[in-house]
């Protein structure tokens, strides 16, 4: 069983969302709605130099979210067994923005961003 992720490459790591949750991809300059969440910044990842900016509209359990992608976008396919759950103790009683990771399969870590954590944090 495989899992398809839409990943944004940053320096030394990537962040990703489930590819099937992505409704559309819009050039940043064409995006006229509310400012998107800068995911790299919120995950403390450094975007690549001269990274292209796009807005990913992602459907989560709590509705659509606009996420800013700054970097090279790639559709990646990993085995479900390569996706590791972040132990719940890391975030204790709160909901963290990363609930699962790909640690080894891609040669660089991929943090799988959970758009619904935005709702949990208000």
């Amino acid at each position: 069983m495989t899992r398809r992720l839409l990943a944004t490459q940053c320096t030394g790591a990537a962040w990703a969302v489930d590819a099937d949750s992505v409704e559309r991809i819009v050039r940043r300059s064409d995006w006229l709605e509310q400012p998107p969440l800068d995911v790299a910044s919120s995950l403390a990842l450094a975007p690549l130099p001269d990274a292209l900016e796009r807005v990913l509209v992602v459907q989560g359990a709590s509705g659509a979210k606009a996420l800013l992608s700054r970097g090279m976008l790639a559709l990646i396919e990993v085995s479900a067994s390569d996706v590791a759950t972040v132990p719940s103790i890391v975030y204790g009683s709160s909901l963290g923005p990363v609930r699962s990771v790909v640690l080894e399969a891609m040669g660089f870590p991929v943090l799988i961003f959970d758009p619904d954590s935005l709702q949990a944090r208000g």
Binding site: S81, V90, Y91, P97
Partner: peptide, 22 residues
């Protein structure tokens, strides 16, 4: 791998036997 917003005592995860541990 450092995880954002994790508590300072548990700053990230590493791979061990096919899973992520704190």
């Amino acid at each position: 791998v450092p995880l954002p917003k994790a508590r300072k005592e548990l700053p990230g995860v590493c791979a061990w036997r096919g899973r992520a541990i704190a």
